[in-house]
Simulated scan of single mutants.
Amino acid sequence: MSYNILFSYAHPDDETFLSACLIHQLAEAGEPAALLLATRGDAGSKNGAFGHLTREQLGELREEEMERAARVLKLGQVTHLGFPDGKLAEVDPGSAVDAIAETVNRLQPSVVFTFPPDGCNYHPDHMAISRLTTEAVVSGRCPSVRQLYYVMSGALHEEGRRPNLVIDTAPLWAMKAEALRCHDSQILAIMRHFGPLETVLDDRRFEAFALAWEQGAMWPEKSEAEARAALRLP
């Protein structure tokens, strides 16, 4: 089955942290998205209830958590590439780009979302999946893809980049909080970022994305209305 939109991230829960409401809105508009995850998240932090798990057990648990979150988000499909968590930057780049391109070409999306080059927080895995996904797309190996979006970050703002698409999470916060809670093994890290989840914090309210590439051109000019229309969002 093909999907018009693909999100390419490093770990289970990245999709919910960064784009839960966009993913849900796409599904509600009749465009359920697909998700590619480079790792199983088996090197992630563990709160007290899960501290006894081995890495293999944590990886299995995080895949199960991802399945639950996918149902909340109304994701159409999730692909796990299974590269080493915490060591994605050490994977042979040719093999990694091959795996990403194979997934993209199987799903045939026209739009791909991923981390910006700085990974939003300079996490090596986040930076690696940005670099590898960008290489797969802009190299011409994924001919179905017409647009590549980056999640907005402080570093992009400092470069003078501005978002082409901004999603207000407040109307859908209950849904996003439910999806975040599905990633229970990471709940302490989630609460450090978002607070107790009962209400959305002002500085975590918006999901924002910048159009980095379109049909061979880097950083094309595009209004938010044009971006929404291309994604079939209201």
Rank of each mutant, 00 (worst) to 15 (best):
E159Y: 08
G216C: 09
F115S: 07
P163Y: 12
E64P: 04
A27Y: 02
E178P: 02
E15N: 01
R141L: 12
I23Q: 15
P117F: 15
C182R: 09
A208P: 00
R232P: 01
K87Q: 11
H24V: 03
L233P: 01
A128G: 08
H52P: 00
P116H: 07
V138H: 13
G44L: 13
A20D: 05
H157P: 00
G216L: 15
L6Y: 14
R40W: 08
I167G: 02
S110P: 01
D42G: 04
F209S: 03
V78Q: 03
C182A: 15
V166C: 08
L18D: 02
E158P: 00
I190T: 03
A155H: 13
C120V: 14
R232N: 11
F83P: 04
M191V: 04
L61F: 12
C182H: 14
L22P: 01
G140H: 14
L61H: 15
T114F: 10
F194T: 00
Y149A: 06
A170W: 02
D14Y: 05
E60M: 12
R162I: 06
L172F: 10
G82V: 02
F113N: 06
Q186T: 00
V200N: 05
L26D: 00
T39P: 03
E226K: 03
G195V: 14
S110K: 14
Q147S: 12
D184Q: 11
T133S: 12
V91M: 13
L132I: 01
F83A: 14
S45V: 03
E198Y: 10
I5A: 10
N4Y: 10
Q77V: 05
F115C: 11
E158I: 04
G48A: 09
G51T: 01
G82A: 08
A33I: 03
A10C: 10
T134N: 06
T79G: 06
T16G: 08
Q215V: 04
S144T: 03
Q147R: 14
P220Q: 07
A89L: 10
H193N: 10
I23D: 01
S110Q: 15
P220G: 10
L75I: 01
R161I: 08
A225K: 15
G160M: 11
W213V: 00
P163N: 09
D168S: 04
A177S: 09
A136W: 08
R228L: 13
R62Q: 12
A96N: 12
D13N: 08
R228F: 08
L156W: 11
A174C: 10
G119I: 05
G160T: 09
L37K: 06
F7W: 13
F83K: 13
E28D: 11
Q57T: 05
P93Y: 14
T16Y: 07
G154W: 10
N121Q: 14
L35M: 06
L26W: 04
P116V: 07
R62V: 05
L180I: 01
V72E: 07
P32G: 09
L18N: 06
Y122R: 14
V145R: 06
H80R: 09
S153G: 02
L165D: 02
N164P: 01
K74R: 11
A69W: 11
R62E: 09
G44T: 04
L172T: 11
A69E: 06
